[in-house]
Amino acid sequence: MPEAVQATKAIWDQNAAPRHRIQWCPGCGDYAVLNAVKAAVTSLELTPAELLLVAGIGCSGQIRNYLNGNAFYGTHGGALAYALGAKMANPELTVLVMAGDGDTLAIGIENFVHACRRDPDITLVLMNNGVYGLTKGQDSPSAGLGQPDWKPSEEHPPFIDPVEVALTCGATFIAQGFSGDPKHAAQLIVEGVRHRGFAVINDFSPCVTYNKVNTYDWFRAHVETVPASHDPSSKAAAWDLVRDFQRRGKLPTGIVYRAARAKGDGAKRLPTWPDELARADVEPLVKRLR
């Protein structure tokens, strides 16, 4: 790594919990996500002040304190909705949502679905491990991946594929990565942030403690790079790709779908400071009541 880049990268270690305070299990996929995010924000040449990390609840959400940058941490399932409001208020912020599969696909699925529809210019890194790690290993909505013998029932329904949900609901950038390849994940995050619209990056991040099925080795055996021939701008091609990989029991890594943003990019920062608010005269509002 060139020296200059290394120096900039060090910025992201400031204002962060020291490495020995990181509370992830040794080998957790989230370390790779952290490295990928740091690499991405470094190569995007962002400053910590202009970054807003909105974290979900779960092991994944701890990431907000493991790197520099503004962060917001609220309720379980709420991250995308906070992020939506923050981005609407100040489009100049780079808003990165870091949330797990429980947060995004169970308690927060309502926000995931509507964020796809609303298509705000924010990036979601869905740190997907198939379990509720922080509460010691209960099934999440993505549990069941890689288990062809899974017998669906009311108690244990089949897993949700966030890529399919995102394609159905209107997200305009959909990609999939894997913690075994953080460099690639970093590229996806860079692309996601650069994309003008809602970017969903489903990043498989193995839980080494509670998920004995979807291990690094399992993922290595099942991920397959999206072929160069794939046209991500075509939704039909994206669906074909998803179905083709499903048929073959594989997981595509790379950009599955990327559409030009339909709406304009003219969003402005909302009036915040006294000089911006001073011009508000409500007389026309009173007049209308006459």
Partner: peptide, 15 residues
């Protein structure tokens, strides 16, 4: 919930 969460997000961003 989405409405109050978005409002909190906007407030975080200073509005």
């Amino acid at each position: 919930r989405e409405s109050i969460r978005a409002a909190l997000g906007a407030s975080v961003a200073g509005v």
